[in-house]
Every structure is written in C-alpha cells, then in structure tokens.
Amino acid sequence: MTVLLGIYHRLTAPIAHLDGLLPILARFVFAAVLLPYFWASAMTKLGDGVFGIFVPSAGAYAQIFPRAMEAAGFDTSQLSFLHTLVVLAGTWAEFILPLLLILGLLTRAAALGMIGFIVVQSLTDLYGHGGIDHAETLGAWFDRQPDSLILDQRALWMLVLLVPAIKGAGALSLDAVLFRNAPLAHPVSPRQGPESRQAGKSQAGTS
C-alpha cells in the first residue's frame, strides 16, 4: 500500500506546480463564457444617445424592479430616485466588474462584487420575475439534471468566481504589477526574531 501511495504521489505531484495557473484559467473561462453575457445584458439597460449610461432605459427598470414597474404602469417617472440609483449602480457594475476581472485589477474585490451581483440577479429572477413558481428555473441539486438556471448554472458561475476571489488574479494581471513591490507582498514571518522584523520593515520602507 505504501508503495502504491508513493507512486501515486510521484505521478500527481507535478500537478501542484500548476496551482498558479488556476486563477488565470478561471479568469479566461469567465471571459469566454460570461463576459459577453453580462456586457450584452448591460447594453440593454442603457438609455438613448451618448449620455445613455446616465439615463437607464425602461427595460433596465423592468429587469431590476419588475414588480415596481408593473405597479407604476411601466412609467419610469413614477419610480423614486432610489430606484434610479440602484438601476444605475447595477448597470455600471455589469460593465465595470467584468472588466476588472479580465484585466486582473482589484481582482478579489471584483470577483466578490460579481458573486454578490449574481446572488441579487438570481433572487430577482426568482421572486421579481416569478421564477420561483417554475421548478425547472430553480432546479435542484443531486437530481441528475445539470442545466437548471439558478441552482446549477449560477452555482457554477460563482464557483468560477470564487477562484480569483480566494487566490487572486494570478501572475498575468495588473494586480501582479501593481502589488509586486507593495509592503504587504513581503510579510515577515512571526517566527523571525526582532532583527529580521526590523530588516523587513526597512526593506518595506525602501520599496
């Protein structure tokens, strides 16, 4: 048994050296699969003309506040300024957060922001657009059906985003450039003595 475990370890150990590729691959999958989806969705929320990014379309309100729009007779002027702020924030987030992830800039914050965005999006689909009334939309785990909108697809989306949220952007990113010489990038081990700590502070001060 020990021999078999040793062989297994020797065969699989090189995979551990690919650990640094994981966040880069996760960002690539996000770009290939989800970036076009989110940006296309954001485009539908823009108003007319050059300043449409500051004046959301009626469809943007209908997507984010479906019940409020229905109650207002789909007249956006009947909604509050708070509704407009939320719609603007959602529209801008749908452009900016994916861009930050692709560039690898402030990646952990962007990934966590996208996870939050997907949670809100899913709740809106379920309770705002009535998806909760359709079992195939909500789906279920361990049911042999891997393609439901919420519990299957969106769970996989968030898993992809958890990789950069936890591990960062990886070497091929703007974060790697910006934080390369940052003091926090060279932490001093708590086991080091006072002289080593002082040397670490001096090195950080000259970075």
Rank of each mutant, 00 (worst) to 15 (best):
L138D: 01
G139D: 09
G139R: 05
G139M: 06
G139K: 04
G139A: 10
A140E: 13
A140P: 02
W141N: 12
W141V: 14
F142R: 08
D143L: 07
Q145T: 15
P146M: 12
P146V: 12
P146C: 12
D147A: 13
S148G: 09
S148N: 12
S148Q: 05
L149R: 12
L149C: 02
L149I: 13
L149E: 09
I150C: 02
I150P: 00
I150S: 01
L151T: 12
L151R: 12
D152H: 09
R154L: 13
R154T: 07
R154I: 07
A155V: 15
A155P: 02
A155D: 05
L156T: 12
L156F: 14
W157D: 07
L159H: 03
L159A: 15
V160W: 06
V160S: 02
V160Q: 05
L162Y: 06
L162G: 08
L162P: 04
P164Q: 01
A165L: 09
A165W: 02
A165E: 02
A165F: 05
K167W: 11
K167I: 03
G168E: 01
G168F: 03
A169R: 00
A169V: 03
G170W: 00
G170C: 06
G170L: 02
A171D: 10
A171S: 11
L172R: 10
S173Q: 04
S173N: 05
S173K: 05
L174T: 00
L174W: 07
A176R: 09
A176L: 04
V177Q: 09
L178R: 09
F179P: 00
F179E: 08
F179I: 04
R180H: 14
R180V: 03
R180C: 07
R180E: 09
R180I: 02
N181P: 00
N181W: 14
N181I: 03
A182S: 13
P183H: 11
P183F: 08
P183W: 08
P183A: 12
A185K: 07
A185P: 03
H186A: 13
H186M: 12
P187A: 06
P187R: 05
V188G: 04
S189D: 15
S189G: 06
P190F: 06
P190T: 06
P190Q: 07
P190A: 09
R191H: 10
R191V: 10
R191K: 14
R191G: 05
Q192D: 14
Q192C: 09
